[in-house]
Write a protein that binds this DNA or RNA. Structure first.
Lengths: 148, 148
DNA sequence: GCCATGAAGTTGAGAGTTCAACCACTTCGG
DNA sequence: CCGAAGTGGTTGAACTCTCAACTTCATGGC
């Protein structure tokens, strides 16, 4: 006995899917073109830049960026090759790795940020009222909340 | 002179990113596990199933599903190999191709749909009030609207 | 009619993600 | 202490997506 989506839910769901598609394409294309990295990589740099000593344990970084461990490993490998991140072994747990944002990485982030924010504004905030921004936050938080 | 995001925008943006991440992972994992296809493929089957004769020109299908031409070509190739879609050449435009949902494809969709809807409900609608669903629709439509 | 231009689709290579193993190390029960 | 189970992280293969050519066919101006 499947409870199908009613008319309103259907519309909302499809609108959401279209919005997500537009967002991802727009954000990724901009970052790829102007900064040579996908949005997921940008997010990693952001999270690292906000952390104490610009560094974080791999798994903490994965959680903060909403990434799987595997994805993070591959991504950090790539970013390490570019010299934007450096790996250090954790002193208290020899299994652990610590990802550190390098100066070059920080510079890359600083250089990429304005264009990215501009694009986010164009794609999202220029299209919404202040009230809708509040609504969006509530909705986003509800959907993002872990208990699935 | 970059106009950075203010506190509220920042929160809303991050909540949205987390929500999108949770959604994509949840939806894709469910469909992959129970139906052996990613969400983008599922969308293609849905759009075809709704079209007259269960068929559509490639480019119309791409637009309807919010996909690039290239992505669609690859995807239809894959789905054709599974016998879920068939290609026909367009009678009025010899460049054109028409994607047709096969009976097997329709069956696959019918089999996949309940679990998918269930998951969408769990991830989205069970977490929102009716009012929020309306809000979400408005916001989604605003963000999805083409004029970038 | 012809040619330039543009639209419809496809293709292959490169990049990122997932999934399932896997190794190294830590923790916990006995 | 010792072994079992669990945690942290990596790896390679399979898969999907993007981007930039490229082919084929339609169209509009001359």
């Amino acid at each position: 006995m499947t409870r199908w989506l009613d008319e309103d839910e259907q519309r909302a769901w499809r609108a959401l899917l279209s919005a997500i598609e537009a967002l991802q394409t727009g954000v990724d294309a901009q970052l790829q073109a102007e900064a040579g990295m996908p949005h997921t990589y940008y997010e990693l740099l952001v999270r690292l830049s906000e952390a104490p000593d610009r560094s974080r344990r791999m798994s903490a970084l994965a959680d903060a960026a909403g990434s799987s461990r595997s994805r993070l490993s591959h991504a950090v490998g790539q970013l390490e090759r570019r010299g934007w991140i450096r790996r250090e072994t954790c002193p208290t747990d020899r299994r652990g790795q610590i990802a550190v944002l390098t100066d070059d990485g920080y510079a890359a982030l600083e250089q990429a940020a304005p264009g990215h924010v501009e694009q986010v504004r164009r794609l999202v905030f220029d299209r919404l009222t202040a009230v809708q921004v509040q609504q969006l936050r509530r909705i986003g938080e509800a959907v993002a909340a872990t208990p699935g």
